[in-house]
Amino acid sequence: DLSGKLIIKAQLGEDIRRIPIHNEDITYDELVLMMQRVFRGKLLSNDEVTIKYKDEDGDLITIFDSSDLSFAIQCSRILKLTLFVNG
């Protein structure tokens, strides 16, 4: 049953990962930690990372904090994230 699940599709460069999320109350910090685990070796804990999501118009919107993240989650059951490393 995928109805209650949130799917995160995260892209870093050419690498795209699909991550099912069971807890929608994820904070921004938890998201960043999850991305560091998912992209281990490509995304380091001291990297400056910018996370953006695609909205319904196809625009890339920056996620700065947990309220941005929860808004993005409300918009779509499949959250398409693009990561930019400013390392």
Rank of each mutant, 00 (worst) to 15 (best):
F84D: 12
E30C: 05
D25Y: 07
N46D: 08
E56Q: 14
Q11P: 00
A72M: 03
D25K: 12
T62F: 00
H22V: 13
I63L: 11
L44R: 09
T27E: 04
T62C: 11
S45V: 10
N46Y: 07
G58I: 00
D68A: 06
I73S: 02
K5G: 13
E56A: 13
Q74Y: 07
S66V: 01
F71C: 10
I63A: 01
F84H: 11
D65V: 00
S3V: 07
I19R: 01
K80P: 15
T62Y: 02
D25N: 12
V85K: 12
E24L: 12
E30Y: 05
K42A: 06
G4C: 13
V85E: 06
D25L: 08
M35R: 01
D59F: 14
N23I: 05
D55K: 15
D47G: 14
M35C: 07
L31Q: 00
N86G: 13
I7P: 01
Q36G: 07
I19C: 06
I61Y: 06
F84R: 05
I63K: 02
Q36I: 08
N86W: 01
R37Q: 13
D57E: 06
G4P: 07
L81F: 07
G87H: 12
S3P: 05
L6N: 05
F84I: 08
Q74N: 10
R77T: 11
I16K: 13
R77I: 03
L12K: 01
I7W: 09
K42M: 05
D29I: 04
Q11W: 02
D29L: 04
K52R: 13
R17E: 14
D29F: 05
A72L: 09
E14S: 09
H22D: 11
I73G: 00
R18M: 11
D59P: 05
G13D: 06
Y28D: 01
N23C: 06
Y28I: 03
F71W: 06
S70N: 11
G58N: 09
P20L: 09
L69T: 01
P20E: 14
I61W: 11
C75H: 15
K5D: 13
F71T: 15
L81I: 07
S66A: 03
L60N: 08
T27M: 03
E14R: 11
D65C: 08
T50S: 13
E24C: 12
K42N: 09
E56D: 12
I8S: 01
R37W: 04
I16R: 13
D68W: 02
P20I: 12
D55N: 15
T62V: 02
K52L: 05
I78L: 10
F71Q: 10
R17Y: 08
C75V: 11
M34D: 03
I51R: 00
G13V: 01
R40V: 09
L31W: 03
L79C: 08
G13E: 06
H22W: 09
D57M: 12
R17C: 11
N86K: 10
I8H: 01
I78D: 15
K52C: 13
P20Y: 07
I19N: 00
A72P: 02
L6P: 09
I7A: 04
I63E: 01
L31K: 01
R18W: 15
L81R: 01
L6I: 12
F64W: 10
V32L: 10
D68V: 08
L43V: 07
N86F: 03
I61N: 14
G87T: 13
R17P: 00
Q36V: 10
T82M: 13
I26R: 00
Y28Q: 00
L2A: 02
R37I: 12
T50K: 08
L33N: 09
S70L: 11
R40H: 13
T82P: 02
T62E: 15
L43D: 03
I78Q: 13
Q74M: 05
C75N: 15
F64P: 03
F84C: 09
R18N: 15
T62K: 13
V38F: 05
P20F: 08
G4D: 13
D29Y: 05
L43Q: 02
K54V: 10
S3A: 07
S66C: 06
R77Q: 14
F71G: 14
N46C: 06
T50P: 07
S70G: 10
F39S: 01
L2M: 14
H22I: 12
I8V: 11
E56H: 11
R77V: 06
E14H: 07
I51P: 00
D15V: 14
T27R: 04
I21V: 11
S45K: 14
R18S: 15
L12N: 01
G13Y: 06
N23V: 09
